[in-house]
């Protein structure tokens, strides 16, 4: 729709700017709070301009955590979160792309049955199967390990389904041409399917990176040692008891740190991400 009506233009801009402010304001407050001292935060009203404790606050949380709440250093939490946010999407992508390849390109007995099995698990997110999953992980002795943290989140019906849908848009003739050229199934997979799936993989990576980074319930259950905390859990553990007892400036600094990597991934991979969701390079 291309219209040139000044009033319409004004109203739409006003709405957009207002929306941006509403979304951005809490983030701004978080950042300001992370640069203040505890006393400054507790004054009413809280100052809305950055203070001068930026380096001190960030240095403290990165190396030593809070004094009243959890003592785990946020540096190691960021590392744990990063492991989770990388292993989960990479695992998911590798497993689902080969499952989808098998389902689309091979005729094997009970092929549809397996597809529907995978598909049905779409209806069972982590939260629904969390108790049995926890039991399994506990019995395997994987509590407080990276394997325990990531493994249950790697199986993914959504990603398998997405790849299946994408593969079905690849013309059959392409597979046949590869067959005529003498490419076996795995050769076809690596030389043709994989390169064509690049954008889909990138889009999935972005979504799953954020999903892995923001996991809350599962890490809360399987990590009890401070050294295994992820950043999101770390924030929760920093908050103890009453309002005044918390070092809000440090909590906010941690929150800012927790927001950065997903934001960075989205910004850096935006081009790929949009391409993967929108166009199909066939």
């Amino acid at each position: 729709m291309v219209e040139h009506r000044p009033l319409l233009k004004f109203v739409s801009h006003a709405v957009l700017i207002l929306g941006a402010i509403i979304v951005a304001f809490p983030l701004y407050v978080t950042f300001v709070a992370s640069t203040l001292s505890l006393e400054e935060i507790l004054t009413v009203p809280m100052p809305l301009l950055p203070g001068n404790r930026f380096f001190e606050n960030y240095a403290q949380v990165l190396t030593a955590g809070t004094t009243t709440g959890s003592h785990a250093a946020v540096g190691s939490m960021l590392f744990n979160s990063m492991v989770m946010a990388l292993v989960v999407p990479l695992g998911k992508i590798s497993i689902s792309i080969i499952s989808a390849f098998a389902i689309v390109y091979f005729r094997f007995p009970m092929r549809n049955f397996f597809f529907w099995m995978i598909f049905v698990t779409l209806m069972l997110p982590v939260e629904v199967r969390i108790i049995p999953t926890f039991k399994v992980i506990a019995d395997l002795g994987l509590l407080n390990t990276y394997a325990g943290l990531t493994l249950p989140l790697i199986a993914s019906a959504t990603a398998t389904f997405l790849f299946r849908q994408f593969f079905m848009t690849i013309p059959d003739e392409l597979a046949e041409a590869a067959r005529m050229d003498g490419a076996g199934p795995m050769r076809f997979f690596f030389d043709v399917v994989l390169p064509l799936s690049k954008t889909t993989m990138a889009a999935l990576f972005v979504i799953q990176f954020i999903y892995g980074w923001n996991q809350y319930l599962w890490p809360l259950l399987v990590t009890s040692e401070e050294s295994m905390y992820t950043t999101v859990i770390g924030i929760k553990r920093m908050i103890v008891g009453s309002d005044a007892a918390n070092e809000w400036n440090l909590v906010m600094a941690t929150a800012v740190l927790a927001m950065l990597p997903p934001a960075l991934v989205v910004v850096l991979m935006q081009r790929w991400f949009v391409k993967g969701l929108v166009d199909t390079e066939k």
Binding site: P171, E173, L174, E176, A177, A178, M180, D191, V192, P195, L196, E281, K282
Partner: peptide, 14 residues
Amino acid sequence: DIAMVFQQYALYPH
């Protein structure tokens, strides 16, 4: 030992 040309060309897009 044959070669085939398809209706939709079936070239590798990448």
